[in-house]
């Protein structure tokens, strides 16, 4: 029991925040996308693109802030492809997502050789965002929570803004209402004179931008270079978090944080070396936790009604 008390300290929570941040960003992206009725399983690919271009721009222009921008842009553009394929071309959403993942891996590997001349890893970026870590004056003095939440690096703060922004968007704004309607009753929305197509485009691109930001976090804030496959399945975990969180922003946040915590815990228990078992046992940990979360929490939640369904209106004369 002492072991667990030793584990549950501020450092552990900080590690959880670090590991959870990219998952939170991507899972909120997934939530927005799914709420509009478009399934997004291509987040792994979008995150990879974001991570790659962020690292490239941060290296090329020696400015990590530029990297963040370019990473978000790359994620958004890649998502635009998803939106175009699913909304305009009526391609099966899962197919398009699978294509995005395949292309994400292929293109980043290809461009790595083209831009940096060698596969594997990019050059080390001259300045990483970790240098811009700052404590928010008053808030960081709060016991326990202060150092955990308010003495962090820029993208973590951006993540807070994203969470608040998207809670606000989904709950209070017209856009949020339209996004939800597009996922529940697209025909009703269309008869009200609002273009389902446009709303879905917006939602998908937003999710891509968030994935790009999550990817950028991995390559230029948490790390200082891009390496092949560095997202390591976080896009899929985010998808799980979104569903475990019941397709809501807050639910996604909680589920993602939970996954981050489990990940951090698995590493820490190993360091303490209290259990002498093969290391693989610890690696199963996060997935079992995710499974229990999904099985336990999803009971009451429900997917958007029109999720994954194609929406098409035949207009005469055009």
């Amino acid at each position: 029991m002492n072991v667990f008390i030793e584990l549950l300290n501020a450092e552990f929570l900080i590690a959880s925040v670090r590991l959870a941040t990219p998952i939170i960003l991507a899972s909120i992206g997934a939530t927005i996308c799914d709420r509009s009725g478009i399934v997004n399983i291509g987040m792994e690919g979008m995150m990879l693109m974001g991570a790659f271009f962020a690292a490239w721009a941060a290296w090329k222009f020696a400015n990590p802030w530029f990297g963040v921008l370019v990473g978000m842009l790359a994620g958004g553009l890649f998502a635009l492809f998803h939106a175009w394929a699913t909304v305009s071309l009526h391609l099966n959403h899962v197919v398009s997502g699978a294509v995005i993942n395949i292309l994400g891996f292929g293109i980043t590997r290809y461009l790595l050789e083209l831009f940096f001349g060698h596969p594997g890893t990019s050059e080390i970026i001259p300045h990483s965002l970790a240098e811009y870590r700052f404590a928010i004056p008053l808030l960081s003095r709060i016991p326990l929570l202060g150092p955990v939440l308010f003495n962090r690096t820029p993208i973590v703060y951006m993540m807070y803004v994203v969470v608040i922004l998207f809670v606000w968007i989904t709950r209070k704004t017209r856009l949020g209402l339209h996004i939800k309607a597009a996922g529940e009753h697209p025909i009703v929305l269309e008869t009200l004179g609002i273009s389902v197509k446009k709303i879905r485009y917006i939602a998908v691109i937003l999710s891509g931008i968030l994935c790009g930001l999550g990817g950028a976090y991995l390559s230029i804030e948490n790390g200082n270079s891009f390496s092949e496959g560095m997202t390591a399945g976080r896009g899929f975990i985010a998808l799980g978090a979104n569903i475990a969180g019941g397709w809501t922003v807050v639910g996604s946040l909680i589920a993602s944080f939970f996954f981050g915590m489990v990940d951090a815990l698995a590493l820490r228990i190993q360091v303490l070396g209290v259990f002498r078992v093969p290391s693989e046992i610890f690696l199963i940990f996060p997935y079992v936790a995710a499974l229990l979360a999904v099985a336990g929490l999803v009971r009451k939640s429900r997917a958007p009604r029109a999720l994954g369904e194609d929406f098409q209106i035949e207009r005469s004369g055009t």
């Binding site: 899929f236 569903i243 475990a244 997935y287 499974l291 997917a303």
Partner: peptide, 9 residues
């Protein structure tokens, strides 16, 4: 529980 998540896990 959605099979996409459970089977993936």
């Amino acid at each position: 529980a959605h099979e996409v998540v459970t089977t993936m896990m």
